[in-house]
Amino acid sequence: MTEIGAERRAAGRKEPDLSTDIGGIRMKNPVMVASGTFGFGPEYADLVEPDRLGGVIVKGISLDPAAGNEPPRLVEVPCGLINSIGLQNPGVEYFVREYMPFLRDCGTTVIVNIWGRSIEEYRLVAIRLSEAGGVDGLELNLSCPNIREGGAAFGTDARLLRQVVTEVRASTDLPLIVKLSPNVPDIGELAVICEQAGADAVSLINTLPAMAVDVETRRPRLGNISGGLSGPAIHPVAVKMVWEATRACALPVIGVGGVSSLADALEFFIVGARAVAVGTATFSNPRCALEIVDGLREYLAGHGLAGMDDLIGTLET
């Protein structure tokens, strides 16, 4: 009897539509896993069904292999962690050969985060990934605080930002997402530059520069002295910046920064993000992104919303 009742209720109520579109990238739902926290794809395969994610954003890939920074590379701080991994990766050729077969078959949207030490390197990685097949979009990392050359240097200088986005845009037909640094006076201004230079979307925020000291040894707690702060501690900062970016430009925004619960994700959607990515929270709960997908479906249904468009950008001020 209860089954019949459940069927009737289901028939009378359409399942909410979780699908979303990020600058031409169709996604089955708006919850991805963020670059740097989900490896190169297969690491979490035993624990997370990738085909239930909205998308996977692969860890930053560069032209040549990169060894990253010296350990310790991670330190926990209240409500967050500081990392100084330094974009260690096996280089684009190895990535395409060893990881793309898994990613092509994983049943979800695949976005590859890319970085370079020069604009030319960004271009060459973008070209290689465009030919690889199976990549649905590129996320330009212009905001990593952990490498000396490239990284945030491109994302915090308006002139360089315009140049790198323009040149990569001219090198690939893949949808182009620009991941922005929070360490700027006006995030809206940079989002507008991305829009003018031909980006299809922006994602924000990357980590905030941070440092922790061991008071007994008086030494930095990271091998690289400082690193980037992520986790719940930075979420309110990210919400504010996503809100500013969505008001400043027409590009779709991916909200990243400290999402560890449905409420965190909802905040991003309400201030205008078209998708979110779960990062640090995956470490303590590998299924966090999947739980948010389920929670989001219930939230939409419970609030009588037919789909994401009824939720995105509905902030009342």
């Binding site: 490896g39 690491e43 624990l47 590379r73 990392n83």
Partner: peptide
């Protein structure tokens, strides 16, 4: 024993 993030090989914190 190294300081670890994810424990499954995704974050590349505990390298040797």
């Amino acid at each position: 024993d190294r300081r670890m993030g994810c424990g499954v090989g995704a974050c590349l914190a505990c390298v040797l």
